[in-house]
Each structure stands twice: as structure tokens, then as C-alpha cells.
């Protein structure tokens, strides 16, 4: 098998040169998708027959929650790549993605709480999904705190990789135990799990918003990663040229 495509990722310069174009593509896609999705979600999609217009919060709540979970999975995958193949770029990706994932989790929690007020009559309900989201936020805080606390860059990356792998193994256990706890401790009146199948005109904007959020994530991640690569390589010729060329 030809591994040159893989080895290319070991070169920061190659990544920096290529990622400029990707960044542009993702940024445009994110802008178009989010704009279209927002208009569709807020103005065009029909209102829910039970929840009325408060249901429109779903169009940011669900994409943010999706992204928060897949971002944690990404942390662990980047961690494995960083630990196994010692790829520096994976370390950069891990440390740059953690704050973005944390902010997505925050959005999911906040919109969940705001949505809960008109739907459940309380700002916060110890619903299984909200609770596991809260725990996910704490897991993100742990990774960020650890990466800040260790001063050596390589050790910090490795420690974060180990922590996120441990976290990913624990995440399904946490999720199931929280769900179990929830069904035991309170009557299942607040189930939003068994939602009736959505009609097409509600479901399509949601899909667009999810795609838009993923593109947004890619954009922001690449922005952070490019800066981090510049910082790490700041003594090289090409970074110097890059710095002098930019504003």
C-alpha cells in the first residue's frame, strides 16, 4: 500500500499550504448552509402542533449536541493517532478542538435549558440527555484544564490523548448509567426520546443546520490549527515569509 498520503500529514508546511484552500471552502459552505438553514428554520418551517414556535430551538440544539459528541470522539481518534504514529498534527488537532467542543456542549446545554422552560415548565430538568451533556461538558473542561496545566507541549498533548481515550471508553457507560438512573428515579413524563417521526419540511432544515454546524466546526478548527502550526514552527523560513506576507 502507498503511504505517501499519510506521511504528508507529518509536514506542518504541507498542511499549512493545503489548509488555506480547505479553510476557504469550509468557511463558504458554513456561511451558505447556516444562512439558508437559519432562514428556513426560523421562518419557513411549520410550527410544531404541540410545542408551537419554541420547537424552533431544536434547529440549534440538536446540531450543537451532535457536534459536541462527535467532537469528543474526534479528540480520542486524534489522541490515538498522536500516541501511535507520533503525529504532531494530531496533537495540534486535539488541543485545538477541545475548546470548540466545549463551547458546542455549552450551546447544547443552554438551548436545552431555554427550550425546557416553555416545554417542561422548568429551566433545568434532570433529563438523561441533558445530564449526560453536562457530564460531557465536565469531561471537556478536564481535557482543557490538563492541557493548560502541563507546561511541556508534548507531554501535555500525550496526557490529553490518554485522558480523552479513557473518557471515550467511559462515555457510553456514563450515558447508559445516567439513562438507567433517570428511568428509575423519576416518572418518564419528560421523554423527548420517542419523538413522532418528523415531517419532511421540519426535518430538512435540521439536516442543513447539522451540515452547517459541521462545516463551521471544520472552519474554526482549521483556523486554530493553522495558528498553532505557525506558533510551533515560528523559527523556520517559511513561517517568516508567511508572517511578512500577511497584513
Amino acid at each position: 500500500m502507498n503511504w505517501t498520503w499519510f506521511h504528508k500529514w507529518g509536514s506542518p508546511k504541507w498542511f499549512y499550504e493545503m489548509s488555506g484552500a480547505w479553510l476557504k471552502g469550509f468557511a463558504i459552505a458554513a456561511c451558505v448552509l447556516l444562512a439558508a438553514g437559519l432562514v428556513w428554520a426560523l421562518a419557513i418551517a411549520p410550527e410544531d402542533y404541540q410545542q408551537g414556535n419554541s420547537f424552533r430551538i431544536i434547529y440549534i440544539h440538536v446540531p450543537a449536541a451532535f457536534l459536541a459528541q462527535s467532537c469528543y470522539l474526534m479528540l480520542a481518534i486524534a489522541g490515538i493517532i498522536g500516541l501511535v504514529w507520533k503525529m504532531k498534527l494530531a496533537d495540534v488537532a486535539l488541543q485545538c478542538a477541545a475548546p470548540i467542543g466545549a463551547s458546542m456542549t455549552f450551546i447544547a446545554l443552554l438551548t436545552g435549558a431555554v427550550w425546557g422552560k416553555p416545554t417542561w415548565g422548568a429551566w433545568w430538568v434532570w433529563d438523561a440527555r441533558l445530564t449526560s451533556m453536562l457530564i460531557l461538558l465536565f469531561l471537556y473542561f478536564g481535557v482543557i484544564a490538563l492541557s493548560q496545566a502541563i507546561s511541556n507541549r508534548d507531554s501535555a498533548a500525550k496526557a490529553c490523548a490518554v485522558l480523552s481515550i479513557v473518557g471515550v471508553i467511559n462515555l457510553p457507560i456514563i450515558k447508559y448509567s445516567v439513562e438507567w438512573w433517570n428511568t428509575l428515579h423519576q416518572p418518564a413524563t419528560f421523554k423527548i426520546t420517542e419523538k413522532p417521526a418528523m415531517p419532511m419540511e421540519m426535518w430538512l432544515p435540521l439536516l442543513i443546520m447539522v451540515l452547517g454546524f459541521y462545516c463551521f466546526f471544520a472552519t474554526v478548527l482549521l483556523m486554530r490549527m493553522r495558528l498553532e502550526v505557525l506558533k510551533r514552527e515560528s523559527r523556520t523560513r517559511w513561517v517568516r515569509n508567511e508572517v511578512e506576507a500577511s497584513r
Binding site: 437559519l38 426560523l42 410550527e47 408551537g52 414556535n53 419554541s54 424552533r56 430551538i57 440549534i60 440544539h61 450543537a64 470548540i100 463551547s103 455549552f106 450551546i107 443552554l110 438551548t111 431555554v114 427550550w115 422552560k117 416553555p118 463551521f216 472552519t219 474554526v220 483556523m223 486554530r224 493553522r226 495558528l227 505557525l230
Partner: peptide, 29 residues
């Protein structure tokens, strides 16, 4: 439909967080 404070605050704060995510790396760069 009467849900204005909820819908707009949720969208507003989320948008703010998203913008912050863009602004922080831009300023840092």
C-alpha cells in the same frame, strides 16, 4: 407565537458563542 423570549434568546446566545469561536482565533492570529 408567544415564545419570543425563549426562541430569540436561545438563538442570540448561540450565535454569540459561535461568533466568539470565530473571533478568538482571528484576534490571536
Amino acid at each position: 407565537g408567544g415564545h419570543a423570549p425563549y426562541v430569540w434568546s436561545a438563538y442570540g446566545i448561540s450565535l454569540l458563542v459561535l461568533l466568539l469561536n470565530v473571533a478568538v482565533p482571528l484576534l490571536a492570529r
